[in-house]
Write a protein that binds this DNA or RNA. Structure first.
Length: 891
DNA sequence: CATCAGAATGTTTTT
DNA sequence: CATTCTGATG
């Protein structure tokens, strides 16, 4: 047993152990906590300023989570509060889990006894269940998701005889969202926002809320709004919680909406020990109700607030940081921070322009191959420190036990590449118990210095349609990738259907769930029968389920023959299943039976014909769907019963991304917030796409600033390598669009950017040797030879991706198109010199036209067929005489 | 009531 | 281009 194991085995530093020494009011330094040594001065201040309101402005990569979790641990070890007296809220389950895990690690034991650590939503569910009757609900209320919500609105629209084409349900749903985000109840709807259905917006809102109440249900927005109402209208309840929460911690404060803000202000009213951590420069959710104003206004809301800035960045190299800082400096509405780093040198942010989106994807594919094989230039990679240096650092710390653990963890978390066996063993032992961490750890082990694991590379796009080009390309060359943030597991149709079955089995009066599945699989119960049932239920004060029972007995007009028979059968089945969910023994034809919930779930899916439905379906998705159903049933094992499972799932819409073979991550910029990668590619920096035209049209300057923050978030995800690119032409919705480089590119400080020249003729000079080889091999192997090699490279779940299906469909149809000639992009004065106003020009995609205006190297051209466009001079050729129409034009 | 062909319509996303 | 929704047929 070495020192390390000894530390692990030694009694953890329990909260209780220090209790005797650090009574409230006792000098704080009486118990010097080891974790404090790991903090820089402002971080330490953020952790130790426990009393009064604190705003921690934590720039990207400055150790925000570390400060937050250490503060939490500190509150506990110094016995400032019991775990149950601390409210700690996040936005996502993932963030909540991370906070719990990391705090537990600091404490040396599980932080399980923290009942009020969770998402805004989960905390409020807990509160509302306790006081449901005060807001007109029963404590067993169900939580509707977006799908149920839409269905409910549609019913409402229909019942009110409103034209749902003129006033779509989705439109009303987003209005609801906007109101609830601001905690606006039906009676408070501003006059100019109630325009829905000819000024019946507020009325509809009221009807909708009434309907929810009769269903004993809430939507996501209600969770917060009801809580605010609860506190506003019940002083005693508010008092109770104000007393309870001696300390409040808020993560990602810049993302809070008005309702969340009000909620926090109410709860912090007594002790005022509220600590909000956020970064105004990373506020990218304005479009869904987040108010940057909340963070900008903090000091006014909480007079005497202490503002602490975390500005030392531990993630990125100096060039990357400088590029990001230069960019964000163009924003006006910000509190202002000056990020700095101790890491000198590093590579500049690279910038490259391409002819079109496909070439951009091809080029990035090659670069990734280069990074993976170590063929990239690696002039000064500050992360490639030798193990000896690290040992020196260890020794300096005198092998202090917690320091050493923290050190190894940090080394590991920063993604450093260690090849030395000793370190590997150390890591192995340390991380043995930590499953989540061990995936990352394996990627560290798998990557010798100067090479990148694919897990360390990410492509961040503005809009999801951009992912397509990459998926297509990577499938062709067999580069493993993973798309993050696609449709989530619990949002898939088959999962929602199955869950609806479970919901009805558990509570037959769940009308929305019953409506969802009563005709899935097809039972001959169509729209007409549904309407009749709804009407019958309403008229007789019955649930939909009971109406269906009546229909089965032939008592409902308009539901006859097959539909009635099938409904009767279904109702009888549900009666059986329901009895099983009650845990009682059920007498069936074959005697008395009692089955567990997993078996019951299987049985429900089989007996209802749902499984069979997908088995008979021969669409390419069907096998995947069956697979998902199996997974769903499997995941039931972890729960006591179906009830428990459903309760859990309503709020957990996570999809665990299983690690396996290393893969490149492709995701939107939004999805990337909070993550970091050694190497980042940022494609599609074109005006109109990024910044997005729509964003600017809808929100003007505010929209542009949010887009710029998004750019800032993107660049700051990178540790050592950041590559920005743009394409002159891009296929969007089947049409070719040409565009100009993003204005954000002009805003990047020149000193920190290296402009790359795109490769010349494809397959000749230029590019990275390793990359070209790999890419070449992919192309020359023919259209996805389906070889074992490729099957290995692209793992099983990639077969389910849209990209793969497209490829599979195309396979055999055409040969892959020949690599097109790519011309040099020379964006300079020379290119412009050839043209003047009136010059007849040719453009590869738009054909012939005449120059009508010039602005630098950006020309406005009136094309004969394609209309007037702005185009870079480099993409135009003179079309004065013959020979101007090259015969190598594709198509 | 199911099925299919044609039209409409395309950011960013968590709970 | 590709998916989703609508409305006209069987």
């Amino acid at each position: 047993m070495d020192a390390f194991d000894a530390w692990e085995a030694a009694p953890a530093r329990p909260a209780g152990g220090l209790a005797a020494r650090a009574m409230p009011g006792a000098p704080r330094d009486a118990a010097p906590a080891p974790y404090l040594d790991d903090l820089n001065p402002p971080q330490r201040e953020a952790v130790e300023t426990l009393d009064g309101p604190v705003l921690v402005l934590a720039g990207a990569g400055t150790g925000k989570t570390k400060a937050l979790t250490t503060r939490l641990a500190h509150l506990l070890t110094t016995r400032r509060a019991w775990p149950s007296q601390i409210l700690a809220v996040t936005f996502t389950n993932k963030a909540a889990r991370e906070m719990r895990d990391r705090t537990g690690r600091l404490l040396g034991h599980d932080a399980e006894g923290m009942p009020w650590l969770g998402t805004f939503h989960s905390v409020n569910v807990k509160i509302l269940r306790r006081h449901a009757e005060l807001v007109g609900l029963k404590s067993t209320f169900t939580i509707l998701d977006t799908d149920d919500q839409i269905r409910l609105i549609k019913q409402l629209i229909q019942a009110e005889g409103v034209d749902d084409k003129r006033w779509p349900a989705r439109m009303f749903a987003s209005m609801l969202d906007r109101w609830k985000n601001r905690a606006i109840t039906p009676d408070k709807v501003p006059a100019d926002e109630g325009g829905y259905a000819n000024n019946r917006g507020a009325e509809f809102y009221g009807l909708y809320q009434e309907r929810l109440r009769t269903l004993n249900a809430v939507d996501f927005g209600d969770l917060l709004m009801h809580a605010v109402t609860l506190f506003r209208e019940n002083e005693d309840v508010l008092k109770e919680y104000q007393e309870r929460f001696r300390y409040i911690l808020v993560d990602e404060y810049q993302d809070t909406n008005v309702a969340q803000y009000l909620w926090l202000r109410l709860l912090a009213g007594k002790h005022r020990n509220i600590c909000c951590v956020g970064d105004d420069d990373q506020s990218i959710y304005g479009w869904r109700g987040a108010e940057v104003g909340n963070i900008l206004r903090f000091e006014k809301d909480f007079p005497g607030a202490k503002v602490i800035r975390l500005e030392q960045n531990y993630r990125s190299t100096s060039h990357i940081l400088a590029a990001a800082s230069g960019l964000i400096a163009a924003n006006k509405d910000r509190l202002g921070k000056t990020l700095w780093t101790a890491e000198e040198g590093g590579e500049k942010v690279r910038l490259i322009g391409h002819w079109d989106g496909d070439e951009e994807a091809r080029w990035i594919g090659e670069k990734i191959e280069g990074l993976r094989t170590g063929a990239h230039r690696n002039r000064h990679n500050p992360r490639s420190k030798s193990f000896e240096q690290e040992l020196d650092r260890l020794a300096k710390h005198g092998l202090g036990r917690p320091t050493r653990q923290e050190f190894v963890r940090q080394a590991f978390e920063s993604g450093s590449a260690y090849t030395d066996v000793k370190v590997q063993n150390l890591l192995r032992r340390l991380l043995k118990s930590d499953l989540k961490a061990s995936n990352m750890y394996q990627s560290v082990l798998a990557s010798p210095v100067d090479r990148f694991s694919l897990n360390e590379i990410a492509i961040l796009v503005r809009a999801s349609f951009q992912m397509r080009a990459f998926e297509d390309r990577f499938l062709q060359i067999g580069l493993p990738y993973r798309v993050i943030g696609g449709p989530r597991f619990y949002e898939r149709m088959e999962i929602r259907d199955a869950m609806a079955y479970f919901r009805v089995a558990v509570s037959p009066d769940d009308g929305l769930a019953f409506e969802r599945i009563m005709n899935t699989p097809k039972r001959g119960v169509g729209d007409k029968a549904n309407q009749a049932l709804q009407r019958y239920a309403r008229d007789n004060g019955l649930t939909l389920f009971e109406a269906a029972r009546a229909a089965g007995a032939g008592a409902v007009d308009g539901v006859g023959g097959k539909a009635a028979r099938e409904l009767g059968r279904l109702v009888a089945q549900f009666d059986d299943w329901h009895r099983f969910t009650q845990g009682t023994a059920v007498s069936t034809g074959s005697g008395v039976e009692r089955i567990d919930h997993v078996a019951l779930a299987e049985r429900i899916l089989d007996e209802s014909g749902y499984t069979a439905m997908w088995q008979n379906d021969k669409s390419p998705e069907a096998p995947g769907r069956l697979e998902n159903l199996k997974e769903l049933v499997g995941s039931l094992e972890e729960f006591e019963n179906l009830q428990g499972f459903l309760e859990h799932v309503a709020l957990i819409m996570d999809n665990e991304t299983e690690e396996g073979t290393p893969k490149v991550s492709i995701m939107t910029l939004h999805a990337a917030k909070g993550l970091e990668f050694p190497a980042i590619f940022l494609p599609g920096w074109e005006d109109g796409l990024f910044p997005s035209q729509r964003s600017m049209d809808e929100s003007g300057m505010k929209g542009l600033e949010e887009e710029r923050r998004l750019a800032y978030v993107g660049v700051t995800r990178a540790e050592t390598h950041a590559t920005i690119s743009f394409a002159a032409n891009r296929q969007m919705y089947g049409r070719w669009q040409s565009s100009l480089p993003s204005r954000f590119i002009d805003e990047l400080p020149e000193d920190h950017v290296e402009v790359l020249t795109p490769p010349g003729l494809y397959g000749h000079q230029g590019g990275q040797p390793g990359g070209l080889d790999a890419a070449g091999a992919g192309l020359h192997a023919g259209p996805l030879a389906g070889s074992a090699l490729e099957a290995k490279a692209v793992d099983a779940n990639a077969y389910n991706s849209p990209g793969w299906r497209r490829l599979a469909q195309r396979r055999g149809q055409h040969q892959l198109s020949q690599p097109r000639e790519v011309r040099n992009l020379v964006i300079d004065a020379q290119a412009v010199a050839k043209f003047e106003e009136g010059t007849r020009v040719f453009h590869q995609k738009f054909g012939y036209g005449a120059v009508t205006a010039m602005e630098g190297d950006k020309l406005t051209v009136a094309f004969e067929k394609a209309g007037t466009k702005k185009v870079l001079a480099a993409y135009l050729t003179e079309a004065g005489g013959a020979g101007a129409a090259p015969d190598d034009v594709p198509f």
